[in-house]
Amino acid sequence: MSLIHLLYDIISADQEAVLLKMLDNHPVYQGHFPGNPITPGVLSLRMIRECVCRETGRPLHYAAIKNCRYVALIRPGDTLRLQRQITENEGSVTVKATLSDANNPDDLRLQLEAEMR
C-alpha cells in the first residue's frame, strides 16, 4: 500500500529536509471528508515511515511512538518540509521528525518521536 504518487510526491531530498507535495489522488479523500479533503492523521505517520524506509534502505515498522502531535491539519495541495533526525541503533532506528509548511517553517503541522524496527 505504498502511498507515494497517491498521497504525496517527493519534490526533493537533501540532508536538511525532504520536500513533499501532497496530492489529491488517494481514494481516501472521497470519504475524508466529502468536499473537505483532510489528510488522515495515520497516513501522515505512514508517509514519514515510507520516507525513513527509503532513506535507510530498510523495511522499517513502528515499534513505539513516544509522541506524535498533530499541530495543524494537512490537506492535498500543501507543500511540506519534512525535517528528520534518524539515528540507527543496534536493531532499532530512532526517528525525530517534524512536518511544516515548506514556505513557512513556523507553520508546524506535525511533530513525531518514534522508534522503528
Binding site: 471528508f33 492523521g41 515498522h61 491539519l73
Partner: peptide, 17 residues
C-alpha cells in the same frame, strides 16, 4: 462534529501484525 487525532503517545506495537 468530525473527529481529528490530536496526539498519540505511549504507543507500543507488538509485531507481527
Amino acid at each position: 462534529n468530525m473527529g481529528y487525532i490530536g496526539d498519540i503517545k505511549r504507543c507500543v506495537v507488538s509485531h507481527p501484525m
